[in-house]
């Protein structure tokens, strides 16, 4: 039996980039506190070079992830939900501490987050049927459209909802076959750090998801301008910077998902609104044989 005088094991978490857990290249860390201001852990404060490395990793992982069959992607994502379930208690503690929720409300948020992940996992092999299809054309062609992933998506995750919000913006990017560079909530990064550990121990290939703890205002501009990022979700951008990021993103004609005025109720039915922005429609004209 260990007494109460046991020395606390203080944690300094790291980033999750390319399937590994590096420190920030800058060496920076910052203190993460709970809703009442008590110290929880140290988190790595990602720099622009970490963002650059994450984009390289996401680009490298794109061919394999986007090339996997939709069925396989669904299985891999479902496996993530299974591992999340195993970390349920840890997620609950981190969400409760970070968001200042009661145990029961935290549990409800974690349950909703895992259910949300499963819901998106189910969509992988249904998107083509719902969003694509055969087009009637005036000629001897079989003409059909299929949705294809956009590429590397930078995601500025919600600042308030640290797990349900994160899952709600990340899972649709993955389900559609994109790879992601995520800047987590700055003040409440711990559920994202744990999600990184979940991803590392599930079947998601390294580089498909890269989690950067740090400041969305600082990293957002580098990601918005980055020529090898194909789309950016500005949900967690500081409201006074979102317009600026959108303008920077226009320089390389990125897809931009604009931030809501206030952070939405993440428990609401998400619909397809977070998947369609990161899909490109490919239309094929196939000559009909005799």
């Amino acid at each position: 039996m260990i007494g109460n005088d046991r020395l606390a094991v203080r944690k300094t978490y790291k980033l999750y980039v390319n399937g590994a857990f590096p420190r920030s290249e800058s060496g920076r860390t910052y203190e993460v506190t709970d809703a009442k201001g008590h110290f929880l852990a140290n988190a790595a404060e990602a720099s622009r070079k970490d963002a650059r490395d994450a984009v390289v990793a996401a680009r490298g992982a794109f061919a394999k992830w986007s090339g996997a069959t939709a069925y396989n992607r669904g299985q891999v994502l479902y496996r993530v939900a299974e591992v999340m379930e195993g970390r349920h208690v840890q997620f609950c503690e981190e969400v409760a501490a970070g968001e200042g929720l009661s145990a029961s409300k935290a549990r409800a948020a974690v349950d909703a987050a895992i259910d949300r992940w499963v819901w998106y996992a189910g969509w992988t092999d249904k998107l083509a049927a719902v969003l694509g299809g055969a087009n009637p054309v005036a000629g001897p062609y079989f003409d059909f459209s299929t949705p294809e992933p956009t590429g590397v998506v930078a995601v500025l995750a919600p600042q308030q909802s640290s797990l349900l919000g994160l899952v709600s913006v990340l899972a649709p990017v993955l389900a559609t076959g994109n790879t992601a560079v995520v800047v987590t909530s700055k003040e409440r990064p711990l559920p994202a750090v744990t999600l990184g550990e979940v991803l590392a121990t599930s079947d998601v290939p390294g580089g498909v998801v890269n989690l950067l703890t740090g400041d969305a205002g600082e990293l957002g501009t580098w990601l918005a301008e980055h020529a090898d990022v194909d789309a950016i979700d500005l949900t967690g951008a500081p409201s006074h910077r979102a317009m600026e990021f959108e303008r920077e993103a226009a320089g390389t004609i990125k897809r931009v998902l604009r931030p809501p005025v206030t952070e939405p109720d993440w428990t609401a039915d998400p619909g397809l609104a977070r998947m369609t922005p990161f899909l490109e429609t490919k239309t094929v004209w196939h000559p009909i044989g005799l």
Binding site: R52, V55, R59, W222, E225, H226, A227, D228, V229, G251
Partner: peptide, 14 residues
């Protein structure tokens, strides 16, 4: 070189 010239990261598409 493009990064130094433009101030933002470039990509293999360029």
């Amino acid at each position: 070189r493009q990064k130094l010239r433009t101030g933002h990261y470039s990509g293999p598409d360029y």
